[in-house]
Amino acid sequence: MSKEIRFGSPLACSFILAVSMLSSGCATQYVDGALRNVSAEQIRKPSRPQDAQLLFTFQTKGTANAKVTEALKAEVTAAVTSSGLFAAVGGDPALSGAILNVIINNVPLDDTAFAKGFATGLTLGLAGSVVTDAYICTVDFISPQGRKITKTARHAIHTTIGAKGAPANGIKAKSPDEAAHTMTRQVVTAALKDLADDSVFK
């Protein structure tokens, strides 16, 4: 015997809520506010910028994540290009022989993230939770002579699920995609600013 579900019935409401949870409609991303935008004007430019070959890898817990690397490569390239630190930036070997290697490593701050999300799902969002993903950006500049300068910057994205208020230091993103791109642009630019401020980098 089949039972028809009517809109407005408790079963239908529960079902719709469950489907909404599955489709991530209840998750909201906030880019951490501690690391502010660094504008191109704030980055000290070298007197004679040289070209550099850009390599980028996105890692998840230290393991290369090829799909996310592909998705964020253009954002990283744009951030490096707009910094004005290099005459030309590209994936091909640079004429000068310099390499700029950018790694963004996604490190979950809380390993119980899955359990939290699962509990939120079981209670149909009534027990909300917040999960924070930390990102460590490491920028290595390797000069044509093989000298290496390393700079790091840290950032975070907070995701609230279910009935949970906004984190105090979070800037709401319109979508997970926007959060990821904003975080990437800000963390790479921050690391590049530190690189530019290093007296060894000219």
């Binding site: 089949s2 028809e4 579900i5 009517r6 809109f7 239908a12 079902f15 489907v19 599955l22 489709s23 390599l55 980028f56 890898t57 290369a64 994540n65 090829a66 799909k67 690397t69 592909e70 390499i99 290697n101 290595d140």
Partner: peptide, 28 residues
């Protein structure tokens, strides 16, 4: 509604069935 729901859930789960790995990225 049940049919639509089942189809929706199936479409959400479809990604788990088969996927291509990402393009190779050169490593430093």
């Amino acid at each position: 509604l049940v049919t639509i729901g089942v189809l929706l859930v199936c479409s959400l789960l479809e990604g788990c069935a088969s996927q291509r790995i990402g393009a190779h990225q050169a490593a430093i």
